[in-house]
Design a protein around this nucleic acid. Structure first.
Length: 295
DNA sequence: CGGGACTCCTGCCAGC
DNA sequence: TGCTGGCAGGAGTCCC
């Protein structure tokens, strides 16, 4: 579920609650997530102070004092919920929670609870268990197998038309799958690729190579880079997109799903030309696009 | 090597 | 109402 804007929303939501706080206790479920829990997971985290929380692609990096990082990924259905230590808004909207007497029982899909030194609780919930946690040296982050081969951040200075053109060069795969490849650019998923291609008026079926014709100005590539950045920025400003699972750490839904032009809208009229949005399957995933506007 | 199919897991929805 | 099949936002592995 969570793509870059959702993970960014979670990172921004967590930061003020966890930055500078010490982890007092760690409780994890016995069920394995996508990766097995690291050895001595709780013992290595307990007592550590959280210096900062960062996002790389769709990963969260919790930087701890002492040179250790906690790497986490939300998979398809993961979410973090913050229960503030001083009492405050709880998991469901409108509920109220007062620590510590009213600490809720973990739900069946709660896999990790961190209690911080101000009694704030951070709970990780993940029904599908495609998420994971890992522990590593902060200085080795760049060499972690999940991070080592990631392409540039789409909102960073290194994601340029020249970079995308070179990634597309000679690729006979559809542009859709090249953009989903985290080695091309890191953090896009199915929703934002569909939306960016619509905005750039590029068909998801077009081969990547055809967007970057050798020796000719790659106008479409420039448009695509600009639209990828725009849709991600707008989605972050809206708190991400909530289809099922994504929530901000407060429990509130994101709002960007209201602004989808094509994703999930098969059969509805295109907002630009009125012809119906089409759904096709590419590399095992749904692509939504307007066959008239996107070429 | 590039690219597609398959896999992990549970929930939800449409259709019968 | 209740079952079944298909589908879901990710990412690694395997095989051609």
């Amino acid at each position: 579920m969570p793509e870059l804007p959702e993970v960014e929303t979670v990172a921004r939501g967590l930061a003020p609650h966890v930055r500078g706080r010490r982890i007092i206790s760690v409780t994890r479920s016995d069920k394995a997530l996508r990766l097995p829990w690291p050895d001595d997971f709780a013992a290595r985290l307990e007592g550590a102070r959280i210096k900062a929380i960062a996002r790389r692609a769709k990963f969260l990096l919790w930087r701890l004092e002492g040179g250790m990082s906690l790497l986490s990924h939300l998979g398809m259905s993961g979410r973090f919920t913050v229960l503030p230590g001083g009492g405050g808004k709880a998991r469901g909207l409108g509920e109220f929670y007062f620590h510590p007497a009213a600490a809720p029982e973990p739900g069946p899909h709660d896999h990790l609870t961190l209690v911080l030194d101000d009694q704030t609780r951070v709970i990780y919930t993940d029904p599908r268990r495609f998420g994971f946690f890992d522990l590593l040296a902060t200085e080795a982050e760049g060499r972690h197998p999940m991070l080592a081969r990631l392409g540039p951040e789409p909102l960073g200075a290194q994601f340029t038309a020249a970079h995308l053109a070179s990634a597309c060069q000679g690729r006979r795969a559809p542009i859709k799958s090249v953009l989903l490849d985290q080695k091309t650019v890191a953090g896009l998923g199915n929703i934002y690729v569909c939306e960016a291609l619509f905005r750039a008026r590029i068909s998801p079926k077009r081969t990547a190579a055809s967007l970057a014709p050798t020796g000719r100005p790659a106008v479409r590539i420039g448009r695509l880079v600009a639209q990828i950045r725009a849709v991600l920025r707008e989605a972050i400003a809206a708190g991400g997109s909530t289809l099922r699972d994504h929530a901000q750490v407060s429990g509130e839904a994101g709002g960007f799903q209201q602004h989808f032009s094509v994703y999930g809208r098969a059969g509805e009229p295109c907002e630009a030309c009125g012809r119906p949005i089409r759904r096709i399957t590419q590399c095992g995933r749904s692509s939504f696009y307007c066959p008239a506007c996107q070429r």
